Structures are given as structure tokens and as C-alpha cells.
Simulated assay, not measured.
Amino acid sequence: MDQRKEKIMITKKIGIIGCGNMGGAILYGALKSGVLPKENAYVYDLNPAMMKKARGWGVNLAKDDEDVCKNSDIVLLAVKPQNAAEALAQCKDALDGKAMMSIVAGVTVERLRAMINGSLRILRIMPNTPAMVFEGAFALCSDNDFSEEELQEAQQIYSSIGVVELVPEVLIDAVCGLSGGGPAYAAMFIEAMADGGVKQGLPRATAYRLAAQTCLGTAKMILEMDIHPGQLKDMVTSPGGTTIEGCEALEKGGMRAAVMECINAGTEKSRRL
């Protein structure tokens, strides 16, 4: 069942430290969905190109990380793992008493607290890039110390641009392996499907559109009609038909085992970060 809720504009001021691919996707999605007023958003990124992009969205541009924190009620930390300590050090004491959402892969809440001056409330999140088109998948740590109001506002941001699941922090690495890297794996599958179509004579553009739409529609059926993937597969595979021949080829190629190992590899890498 589709879990997205009715969109309600949030009232707190949101700061974004790092407006790259993921931070930018979340900000853009929240702005376009109408959940976050642009005047309530404060952004800082070391990259001038990212700041120029944010300026085009009409948000407030902060002069540095500390300035973001001073002007915000809830801060989104959206930097690369290797840059987290430096970014948080630049916040100085401005995070004390604030709430912070972290999408920094592989960095636990315990490690984040050790990088920060003062005390604050932390909500760790694992997002993915389809947030840019309002189809993101977000895992929010259920074991957090946000206030009830802060958690509701955070959920409102992410549910407006995708699906939200609450999971304990111990499972966040598995989420990273599954939905964090999932868009890349799905894109590879779509590309492979299109290659197969091209091999059989379809024009490249047509093959990409058919493959991408097929994956999109299948995902929507599973989510919105609450259909088990196996049930959907059985709906398409007629006895002695063409689809069961394709399914057999995938099984012979070890697709299931390869995908499971793919998720395992991504999860283990996240644990090592």
C-alpha cells in the first residue's frame, strides 16, 4: 500500500549542510512538493556550483556551516562520510540544543555525537536519489531522540517525496545496501533489458522507454495494489508461454543469487565506512 501522506507545510526552519546530489534531491523535492517554504530553508555547500543551484531555487544562502545551524531549527547533514568531522567542527557550538538529521552513510549516531560540540538530538536517515522525482525510499532510525513534533516534521518532509520506513539503527547498513544503492542496480537492469531489446531489433530509445516504464509500472503495482512480487510474476507467466522461458533464462544465469550478493556487498561496505 502506498504510504505517502497528505502534504502539510512544515513550520520549522530547515538547514542543509551539503547540497550535492542527495542533499539537493531532498531539498528540491521538499520545495517542489510544497512541504517546505523556500524562505524556511538555509543552505551551505563548499562548491560554488551547488550554491548557485540552491540560489536558483530561492532559498536562503548561508555563509558557512555555523551560519546554517544558527538560523535553523533542524539541520540536515548531507556531506560525504570523510567530510563529516570537518563539517561538524565548523558548526562550533551552534548545534548545541538543536536537532540534526544525518544522511551520512556508515557514520553511526555514536560517532556523530563524538564529532559535535554540545548536546543535540539526532535522527539518522538512509535516503536514495529518486527523491528528486518524488519517488524516494527513506529509512528513518526508530531509535532516535527527536521530539515528537520534530519527528513528525521530518517524516512529513520525506513522505512528501517518497516512502518512509522506520527501522532500528542496527539495520541501516542493510538499507544502504538495498535501497541506498538500489537505483544503480535498477538502472543496470533496465539497461540490460534495453540491450536485449536492441539485440532483437528495437530502436535504442524505444527499448529504454519500454524497459524503464515496465519497471516503474511493476513497482507501482507492488506498492499501490499490495501485490506480492511472486504473485505478480505468476500473473504474467502463462503456462508454456514466452515469459516463463525468460524466467528460466534468468534462473539459469543466477540472477537471484547475484542480486542477493550485490545487497550483501553494499551492506558490508557500509559497515566498513
Rank of each mutant, 00 (worst) to 15 (best):
D2I: 06
K5T: 15
E6K: 13
I10M: 06
K12L: 08
K13P: 03
I14N: 05
I14S: 03
I16W: 08
I17Q: 08
N21F: 10
G24S: 07
G24Y: 04
L27W: 03
Y28W: 01
G29S: 08
A30I: 06
V35W: 01
V35R: 10
L36F: 05
L36E: 00
K38Q: 04
E39C: 01
A41D: 05
D45F: 12
L46E: 13
L46V: 15
A49R: 15
M51N: 11
G58Y: 06
N60H: 13
N60D: 02
K63V: 15
K63C: 10
D67S: 11
K80A: 12
P81V: 03
Q82W: 12
N83W: 08
N83G: 11
A84N: 06
A87D: 13
A87G: 11
A87N: 11
K92F: 10
K92I: 06
A94H: 09
G97C: 07
M101L: 15
I103T: 02
V104Y: 00
T108I: 13
T108Q: 13
T108E: 12
V109R: 15
R111Q: 15
N117V: 13
G118R: 02
S119V: 12
R124Y: 00
I125W: 01
T129W: 07
T129P: 03
V133G: 02
A137L: 14
F138V: 15
F138G: 11
S142K: 14
S142V: 12
D143K: 15
D145N: 15
L151Q: 10
Q155F: 10
Y158H: 15
I161G: 01
G162T: 07
V164K: 05
V164D: 11
P168G: 09
P168I: 08
E169F: 06
V170R: 15
I172E: 06
C176L: 01
G177A: 04
L178S: 02
Y185L: 06
Y185P: 02
Y185F: 04
A187T: 10
M188R: 14
M188P: 02
M188N: 11
M188W: 07
F189V: 14
E191H: 11
M193C: 02
A194K: 06
A194E: 00
G196Y: 03
G196P: 04
G196R: 01
Q200S: 11
Q200E: 14
G201H: 00
P203S: 08
R204W: 08
T206Y: 07
A207P: 02
Y208A: 09
R209H: 13
A212Y: 05
T218K: 03
M221S: 00
M221F: 03
L223Q: 09
L223D: 02
D226C: 10
D226P: 09
I227W: 10
I227P: 02
H228L: 09
K233R: 11
K233E: 01
G241F: 13
G241A: 12
I244F: 05
E245F: 04
E245G: 12
G246K: 03
E248A: 06
A249Y: 04
G254D: 05
R256V: 04
A257E: 13
V259G: 03
V259P: 03
I263R: 04
I263E: 02
N264A: 13
A265Y: 08
G266C: 05
R271K: 15
